[in-house]
Computed example of a mutant assay.
Amino acid sequence: MGMGVASSSRRRGTKRTRRAAMAEINVTPLVDVMLVLLIIFMVTVTLPAVGVPVELPESRAAAVEEQPDQITISIDRAGVIYIENEAVAAGRLPEALEALDRGSQQPLIVLRGDRSLDYGRVMAVMGELGRSGFTSISLVTDGSVTPP
């Protein structure tokens, strides 16, 4: 009987000191990480594809989908030509176009010209593109709701 009393008191003592296992998961760090990732995603999706500041003309033309192998050429307000984000020195456009990696197929050229540019400047760049063998050229514009 003495053994039974001692063992029962020992069990009661362990029940009092033993804590129940926590079944809750702290989700606050998970929510914090997910919100940061969401903000990063939202910011990077809305960034322009090319960092050259160009004020595009307006047009009601249908939008062209981006292609992974496209090459973006921009002409800013001052008439400086950029291939992607790299400025091309004056008179060096033919050499810069020859140095482009064309791959197995002709890449799509996306031409972005500032609205304040002279039409002749844009046409000179397009002529040089054609002379270099680039035949697929898309002109980029801002969307417009009013007809010209």
Score class of each variant (00 low, 15 high):
M126I: 05
D101M: 08
M1Q: 08
V110N: 03
P107G: 10
A78I: 02
Y82N: 07
D114M: 06
V110W: 00
R16D: 10
L100S: 08
V145K: 06
I73L: 10
L97P: 01
D114C: 08
V140S: 14
V54E: 08
V45M: 11
V33D: 14
S104V: 14
R60P: 09
P48A: 11
P68F: 04
S136P: 01
P94R: 02
A87S: 12
L37D: 13
A62N: 11
L56I: 06
Y119V: 11
P94Q: 05
T141G: 07
V122K: 10
A87V: 03
T44R: 07
L108D: 09
G103D: 06
L47W: 02
M3S: 15
R77E: 15
L97V: 02
Q105A: 15
V64S: 12
M126C: 03
L47G: 02
L97T: 03
S74W: 00
E58I: 03
E66V: 10
L129M: 09
V122T: 13
R60S: 14
A21R: 12
R131C: 00
M1G: 14
Y82K: 05
A87I: 01
V125G: 06
V122N: 08
S144Y: 00
E86L: 03
L117K: 05
D101A: 14
N26K: 13
M42P: 06
S132T: 00
I40F: 03
S74R: 00
E95Q: 13
V27R: 15
S104E: 15
P68M: 08
V45F: 08
T28V: 12
A78M: 05
L56A: 07
A124Y: 00
A63G: 04
G91L: 03
G133K: 05
S104M: 13
V80I: 14
P53C: 05
P29G: 07
L37M: 12
M123D: 15
A63E: 13
S7G: 08
L108A: 10
Q70A: 13
V45R: 14
R18Y: 00
E58Y: 10
Q105D: 15
E55R: 11
A89G: 10
L93M: 03
T28Y: 06
D142G: 06
G130R: 14
E65W: 02
G127P: 00
R77K: 14
I109F: 01
A124G: 03
L38R: 04
G4Q: 09
S144H: 01
T135R: 09
Y82D: 04
E24R: 11
P147T: 09
A87L: 02
E55I: 06
G133R: 04
V88A: 03
I109M: 11
L111H: 01
A90G: 05
V110Q: 05
L111A: 09
S104Y: 05
D101T: 09
E24S: 10
L111V: 02
I25P: 00
V64M: 12
G130M: 10
A62W: 00
V52I: 13
I109L: 08
L100A: 09
L100F: 02
D118K: 07
M42A: 15
I73F: 00
F134G: 04
A89V: 01
N26Q: 05
G13A: 15
L129I: 08
V52Q: 06
Y82A: 07
